[in-house]
Nucleic acid binder design. Structure first.
Lengths: 129, 129
DNA sequence: CTTGACTCTCCTCCCGTGGGGAGACTCTAA
DNA sequence: TTAGAGTCTCCCCACGGGAGGAGAGTCAAG
């Protein structure tokens, strides 16, 4: 299977497939005499796996590690579980930050005066800066 | 005041000041005979303003617009108010996305099996992909 | 006048995930 | 054999906000 066929069947752009191969995520089984990449059927399963993990917030580096475990003949479930737990922790942290940030913005707007007295010592009297 | 003095008094790196000047955020009052940028005292106020708006999540482009209003002799309070409201809307949207995402991750981990039966048709039996 | 600190411009690089295009080559069907 | 579609490598671009460094010129104190 050449790269265009794999792109068609997987729904991913050719550029993405080449990029994944460069990163070592998607090894080609070889090259044609003219230098065209050749992929096997298992590439489709690999791409589904990559797509799913990406949708769960893992980076391509994270996914690379999981695939390395798989390629070593082991189940990557434990690694994925750890990555997902870390992902939840990151989301929780981000949620805390965003809630705090929202409160700050809201309290500023609460007392906002659309037409305050100009003050030459500051640029925006509402922010006092 | 040369750029090093402004960096020291504002606490910002020289590189940042040059970058802001390139963007038109921080006009220098002129150049010395040797070509050194010269800044006035009002640059410090400007930098405080920029720092504050950055901390509220505005991009340098947004800030540029606010400063343009100020430089035109008007109060930028209305523009800033609109930007902050937009910022709240973005935060709310992001919060919704993150909460949804967290539920997806959590429900996956809920039923996770650390040591499932290998399945040659998939890479990770827990994800079924 | 010298010396050391300061500043100048210009260039590349970072993060992540590719997109866009040039110019050259290869494959396949008629 | 030839046309047209497919593919190759290589390079720059995006976002946002600078960081790092090279090589050269400038300023101020002693």
């Amino acid at each position: 299977m050449k790269i265009g066929a794999l792109a068609g069947r997987s729904g991913l752009p050719i550029k993405t497939l080449r990029y994944y191969e460069d990163l070592g995520l998607l090894p080609a089984v070889g090259r044609s005499e003219g230098g065209y990449r050749l992929f096997g059927e298992e590439s489709l399963r690999r791409l589904e796996f990559i797509r799913r993990l990406k949708s769960l917030g893992l980076t391509l580096d994270d996914i690379h590690e999981c695939l390395a475990v798989h390629d070593a003949g082991e189940l990557p479930c434990g690694d994925i579980q750890r990555q997902l737990q870390r992902q939840i922790d990151l989301v929780d942290e981000r949620l805390r930050e965003l809630r705090l940030f929202r409160r700050e913005l809201q309290s500023l707007l609460q007392n906002w005066q659309s037409d305050p007295a100009p003050n030459t010592a500051v640029i925006c009297p509402n922010l006092n800066v």
